[in-house]
Nucleic acid binder design. Structure first.
Lengths: 225, 225
DNA sequence: TGGTTCATGCGCATTCTGATCGTCGAAGAC
DNA sequence: GTCTTCGACGATCAGAATGCGCATGAACCA
């Protein structure tokens, strides 16, 4: 975990640095807005501690610049002023949290922990198999980068198979997961959709295991069978 | 955006509820820990305001239970006590922010806004998609710079979609987050509002994914390969 | 009166059905 | 061992049915 501190007061800055280093973080320290902005823009941090009252450029300005540049690291703002309007402005400028000086070091550490935990909680929503890529969040499917239009049922079927990549999935299992309740089992809708998906994504995407069901394999982790 | 308030003091609870409703949130109010825990466990909220000092079950306990159940909504903790150890405990128990009583209502609103924004992965209070720009702070919407007048419900719907840009949002999900608890699910109000928003902002702003729901896409980050 | 909700009909993409065709694999004959 | 045959299972197709989403206007509410 790498952390940037932008703090103009040397004593406080140094103290924070050593405290956080004691907690196992890698810490960079910057003493003014201009330099701080540069470091935040060029290096990759897991979190930033930013003092609002800075020489050269104001903290809020720096924050705004980062956000406009697309920097998304969590920012903990330090403010000496205790007026809530400043805090509100900070939060609206894109700060993720703030702390009023003076503060307990323990609290700073706890808040940083919470920020980092939250920021890293973003798990990927992308499933891949060969050239096929499925984003469960946006519901979009691409084949070698090219977007492919799937209907709702086609999507559900493919999604289930990709979630169980490498496993043999029986027709019954598919029916049970794609349709909510009782569904006439004497029908070949599943086959129909498998056919249609194969047409759109290539015949080799879904393998048929006779008498058992279907399986979707990723050629990447094929163990030479 | 749907919010749960767990607050035992009736006056404060009611006041918060009406304030937040005035801000365009759908608000459910619970007066004790047990009920609050149940609601948070069964319904889907975008954020929770949780008082620590509660009858029946303590706020921290409720929070811990939610987190153990896998509930990930952002939680803003209210504490009457001003000791930092309590705050630290709260943050470590899974709170995302806290506010010491008494507090300014504006600050609560700003913090909630920030929490919701952060939870959806956004860093600025301005949400954009193509030519459409929505400022969550002022509640204003513009199309290529031109201000557009949206009604309350239209705004809520658009706001939710923009907070979840690129994600497929089902009609049920929209209903659940735009309205509070009791609402007749068998109606086509959502469709009506989608139609009206399209009329005001252009038909291509909201994409229909048949059988799944709606999606708001930013043409800026669409093409890959 | 402006905003919100409900009801209705239409158009059409999507899904389902059932019949037909293709393919696989096992078993038996040579 | 290998060739042939046969039955069962899967693939495919196209027409029919379904039901989703859109639009519009009326009813309802504050």
């Amino acid at each position: 975990m790498r952390i940037l501190i932008v703090e103009d007061e040397p004593t406080l800055g140094a103290q924070l640095k050593s405290t956080l280093e004691g907690q196992g973080y890698a810490v960079d320290l910057s003493a003014d807005g201009e330099d701080g902005h540069f470091m935040g823009s060029t290096e990759d941090y897991d979190a930033v501690v930013l003092d609002l009252g800075l020489p050269e450029i104001d903290g809020l300005t720096v924050l705004g610049m980062w956000r406009r540049e697309g920097r998304t690291f969590p920012v903990l703002v330090l403010t000496a002023r205790d007026s809530w309007s400043d805090k509100v402005a900070g939060l609206d400028a894109g700060a993720d949290d703030y702390l009023a000086k003076p503060f307990q070091t323990e609290e700073l550490i706890a808040r940083l922990r919470a920020l980092i935990r939250r920021a890293s909680g973003n798990t990927s929503s992308e499933l891949t198999a060969g050239d096929v890529r499925l984003d469960t969040r946006s519901g979009r499917v691409t084949l070698s980068g090219e977007p492919v239009k799937l209907t709702a049922q086609e999507y559900k079927l493919l999604s289930y198979l990709m979630h169980h990549k490498g496993k043999v999935v029986s027709r019954t299992e598919l029916i049970e997961h794609i349709y909510d309740q009782d569904f006439d089992r004497d029908s070949n809708t599943i086959e129909v959709f498998v056919t249609r998906i194969r047409k759109k994504l290539g015949a080799d995407v879904i393998t048929t295991i006779r008498g058992l069901g279907y399986s979707l394999d990723d050629p990447a982790d094929a163990p030479r069978a």
